[in-house]
Design a protein around this nucleic acid. Structure first.
Length: 668
DNA sequence: TGGGATGGGGTTTTT
DNA sequence: CCCCATCCCA
């Protein structure tokens, strides 16, 4: 293979890629070729004869993990079956699967996502006879998570939560389920209680790489720190300016901790930006300068000041969406671009809908990432719940979802009775259902008993089939037709044929996902358990990665991506910086600024920002103020386009952009 | 008792 | 605008 690092990389990148022994901290600015460097680094390690199985590459999102594996494969040209490139949570899951029995975990547990968590929390509250209306479930879940991960302790003002906390965890155990926090915390518990397990992983993973280090939580850092403490071959890559997950426990102070824990570490900065024009870098630098808590860094680029940076003040969100649509059309034709050259970024999910509608009306092909994940859609979640019940009948939350979907006449009071039964005997809802279905019970009407036993039989039957057949995909579609799930969808949406059709299409897509997953020869994993594990951690993955579509997403979801032209919508003061974030913690203004920074630096050439004068908030059209961050951008760069002359001055700039495109400067 | 109708309310970001 | 909770009717 003979890699020539110095030919493929700039001096700093090559330096970083070749320093494979000892601790290394890499500060990688936006667009500085970080992924490229990492790819070559790992390829170089493999070339040096380091076995794939000794490398652990951890990232933050699935997207990043997949991309990393893909790129390395591309450079090295060899299959990477033994390389571990995954998210922290997926890694934690694999540890728990392998050694979880030491902590009393059954072999096949269910991973609860936030939705499941919330509904379980609700169930816990009802059981404890606590009014669910009086409690802020959101806040409660946050506190539980904070306590669980050691970010908070029980003290005077939240002591009342303790019984809920304990009941919550007891429920997880009873249902044979774990939540996302468990995927980090339980491996840590395992390491401290069973040093031989820690030793096993220390030996196994001699080389550790952490990407997006600024987004790791203290607990996640603790995991890798423990793993690397002995061999000290650990490389962390991050950019404190792009730390945007502090609300979830991410702590950029990890960078400082790393320097303390590994005092002999080298530090390399990647500051040359290969992505954006000089103007984009200029406004990005000018913005981020206003943050106080950051490593000194100077992002620069050799590219000139081309492209358009424009601010537009539409009257309302309707005009904003239309403007974006029109502009995309215009640039598309003029600059010979493709739809997927455009990224439309927003701060909050609910802003996506309006733009989506405008695109729909204008027949602009688009795809939404972020927002509600495919796997969280109601109809998909229903199907997943059926699968989860087959895999783990004790999973009460999933059973609750499907017990009366489609309608079986098992309603509120029957459920109440079943719940009482399971509480009394300390077993799961499914056990209660089974008990009821087997024996006549005075409290249960015979017709309902029959329904219950039909359901139990149905589950048992398909459970058998799913595990005895070679492929479970066809069994799943068979099961869905046996319960007439599609009829159920139609019945659920009277008078909304389109919606029903769309949902049915989603079901078909889901079945296809199963089949593709099962038939993928590269995958070593097979069977229902592995499938469920793989999707439970895929919060936001996209089933259709079709090209040729405008990318519509939240800023958070856009991290790591780049677009020739970026539209940043809703650049208003209550949206970014987000009103509630600031109210909760005034210090988060810096994180909001980083968000803005991330958004800007996604653009290669053109950046259009829109700040509507009014916006509909809860049915009411309310006045909006331009984001305060706009004042931190240099006027002369933005000045190219003034609000009321968007069309004219951008036309001039477009003209030049068009010429550049024809000269072949713009590529994709 | 279950299911349909009606009214009220509405998560910042994600594993 | 859509989802959920609650209420009331069959």
């Amino acid at each position: 293979m003979a890699l020539q690092l110095t030919e493929e990389l700039n001096p700093e990148q090559a330096d970083a890629a070749a320093a494979i022994y000892g601790p290394l901290l890499i500060i990688a600015g936006a667009g500085s070729g970080k992924t490229r460097m990492i790819t070559y680094r790992i390829a170089y390690m493999l070339e040096q004869g380091i076995p794939q199985s000794e490398i652990l590459a951890l990232t933050f999102t699935n997207k990043a993990a997949e991309e990393m594996a893909e790129r390395i494969q591309l450079v090295t040209g060899r299959p990477l079956k033994k390389l571990t490139a995954s998210t922290f949570h997926a890694f934690g899951l694999s540890v728990l699967k392998k050694h979880g029995s030491l902590l009393g975990y059954a072999q096949h547990f269910t991973v609860y996502d936030q939705q499941d968590q919330m509904s379980m929390l609700k169930a816990v509250l009802t059981e404890l006879r606590i009014d669910t209306k009086e409690t802020d479930l959101y806040e409660l879940a946050g506190t539980i998570s904070a306590v669980k991960t050691g970010r908070a302790q029980f003290s005077g003002d939240n002591l009342s939560i303790r019984p809920i906390f304990e009941e919550y965890n007891a429920h997880l155990k009873l249902y044979n389920a774990v939540d996302f926090d468990d995927l980090i915390m339980q491996p840590l518990a395992l390491f401290s209680r069973n040093p031989e397990v820690l030793e096993y992983y220390r030996k196994k993973f001699q080389y550790i790489l952490v990407d997006e280090f600024q987004d790791t939580s203290l607990q996640q850092y603790s995991v890798v720190k423990q793993l690397a403490e002995k061999h000290r071959n650990i490389c962390v890559v991050g950019d404190d300016d792009q730390s945007i997950y502090s609300w979830r426990g991410a702590d950029y102070r990890n960078i400082i901790k790393f320097e303390e824990d590994f005092p002999e570490c080298r530090e390399i900065k990647l500051e040359q930006n290969y992505r954006s024009t000089g103007s984009i870098i200029k406004i990005a630098n000018s913005l981020i300068r206003n943050n106080t808590n950051r490593k000194d860094k100077n992002l620069w680029t050799g590219t000139g000041n081309s492209g358009i940076i424009a601010l537009f003040h539409p009257e309302d969100e309707q005009e904003e969406a239309d403007f974006i649509g029109d502009k995309i059309r215009e640039l598309l034709i003029r600059n010979h671009l493709r739809y997927d050259n455009f990224g439309v970024l927003v701060r909050t999910n609910n802003l996506i809908t309006g733009i989506e509608r405008a695109f729909l009306a204008a027949s602009i092909p688009y795809k939404v990432s972020g927002g509600q994940s495919f796997f969280q859609r109601k109809e998909i979640k229903d199907v997943i719940s059926y699968l989860r019940i087959l895999a783990n009948p004790d999973d009460d939350m999933s059973l609750l979802r499907i017990i009366n979907t489609p309608k079986r006449g098992i309603g509120k009071s029957t459920l109440e009775y079943l719940r009482g039964l399971s509480e009394k005997h300390g077993y799961s809802l499914f056990s209660a259902l089974t008990a009821v279905s087997h024996a006549a019970d005075v409290s249960i009407r015979e017709s309902i008993r029959i329904k219950a036993s039909e359901l139990v039989e149905h589950i048992e039957n398909y459970k058998r089939l799913v595990f005895s057949s070679k492929k479970f995909g066809p069994i799943v579609s068979d099961m869905l037709s046996s319960i007439s799930y599609k009829n159920h969808i139609i019945a659920e949406h009277p008078g909304n044929e389109n919606l029903a059709q769309w949902k049915m299409k989603n079901i078909d897509i889901f079945i296809n996902i199963i089949n593709n997953w099962e038939n993928n020869p590269d995958s070593m994993k097979k069977g229902l358990y592995d499938f469920l594990n793989s999707i439970s951690l895929k919060g936001k993955s996209e089933p259709d990665q079709e090209r040729g579509k405008v990318n519509l997403m939240t800023i958070h979801a856009s991290k790591g991506l780049e677009f020739q032209t970026v539209f940043l919508a809703g650049v208003e003061d209550h949206i970014i910086p987000h009103k509630r974030a600031i109210e909760e913690n005034p210090e988060s203004i810096e994180e909001e600024r980083r968000l803005f920074y991330v958004a800007i630096t996604r653009a290669r050439e053109n950046l259009f920002m829109t700040s509507a004068r009014t916006r509909k908030v809860m049915r009411e059209q309310t006045d909006s103020q331009p984001s305060r961050f706009l004042e931190e951008l240099p006027k002369d760069v933005i000045g190219k386009v003034k609000e009321d002359t968007v069309a004219d001055s951008s036309a001039a700039a477009d003209y030049f952009a068009g010429i550049r495109a024809r000269l072949g400067a713009g590529r994709d």
